[in-house]
Each structure stands twice: as structure tokens, then as C-alpha cells.
């Protein structure tokens, strides 16, 4: 078996985001919840913008959400995505009140609409990396 070069951009987790990326590896979508006032925030960052507490409690999100917007990419801005063209990227409103941008798998372009229910899935893209994606939720 030959190891093919992984061409896509690779995340460099920060001190604040490492638990998030570790969570994905174990198939869990973890979000930061303020340890003081309870506000949930994403993407991971150091301090709560409501009460300014640095205390964080990681919670496991349901992984359920709806489509807030989307784009369908027809041009490979990175050679690692060439074989996936065209691909759908959706902006997801998670039930927990934050968003994430992820690819939508297994759906037709014409299926995508505002409010479409989706569920986050976990894709092992290389031995030490799991990235999030989503599928249509029934």
C-alpha cells in the first residue's frame, strides 16, 4: 500500500481548540460552554464574550442542525479537492445556537434549501485527523 500525499489544508489545533479536534477523533462533537455564565461558543476561543470568564466546560453537542446557507464549489482552489468537484458546503445552525461550515455528503444539489435538517458526521481523512461533515437528517 502506498501512502498518497494528503494535499488538503491540515488544521493546526490551538491550546483552546485541541479538545475539539480530539473530540472529533472519538466521534464526538464537543463545544465550549462558559464555565461561569453557560454561554456556548464556537469556533473555540479563549474567553467568553458575555462574562469574560476563561473557564470552559466542554459539552457534547447533539450534532443536529439545519442549513442556514450554502455554496456549491465547482473550482478546486486546492488540488486535494479536485476529485470531489462539485461539492456542497453548508453553513449549519446547530441546535446549540452556534454554527459550523461543513461539506454536505450524499445529497443532490437540488436538495439543498434553507432550513434543511442535517446531522454532523465524522470523517477520518488521514490517520491522525478527523474532520466534520454532515448528511441530510430525516
Amino acid at each position: 500500500m502506498t501512502a498518497e500525499a494528503y494535499l488538503k489544508p491540515v488544521p493546526e489545533p490551538t491550546y483552546e481548540s485541541k479538545p475539539y479536534w480530539d473530540g472529533l477523533k472519538s466521534g464526538r462533537l464537543l463545544l465550549q460552554k462558559c464555565g461561569q455564565c453557560g454561554k456556548i461558543r464556537h469556533y473555540p476561543r479563549p474567553v467568553c464574550d458575555v462574562c469574560y470568564s476563561f473557564e470552559v466546560r466542554w459539552i457534547e453537542a447533539s450534532g443536529l442542525g439545519t442549513v442556514h446557507s450554502w455554496t456549491i464549489t465547482h473550482h478546486a482552489f486546492n488540488p486535494g479537492f479536485k476529485l470531489e468537484l462539485p461539492y456542497i458546503l453548508v453553513t449549519v445552525d446547530l441546535e446549540e445556537g452556534v454554527r459550523m461550515q461543513v461539506p454536505l455528503r450524499g445529497a443532490k444539489e437540488t436538495d439543498v434549501k434553507l432550513g434543511l435538517p442535517v446531522r454532523i458526521i465524522f470523517e477520518q481523512v488521514k490517520p491522525d485527523l478527523v474532520t466534520p461533515a454532515c448528511v441530510t437528517a430525516s
Binding site: P9, P11, P13, F77, Y87, L89, V102, P103, P132
Partner: peptide, 10 residues
């Protein structure tokens, strides 16, 4: 760069 480029929004 950390959260969206790796999934294809570059």
C-alpha cells in the same frame, strides 16, 4: 484556516 479550509472552504 483552522476550521473551514480543511473541509474545503478555501
Amino acid at each position: 484556516g483552522e476550521h473551514e479550509m480543511p473541509v474545503g472552504a478555501i
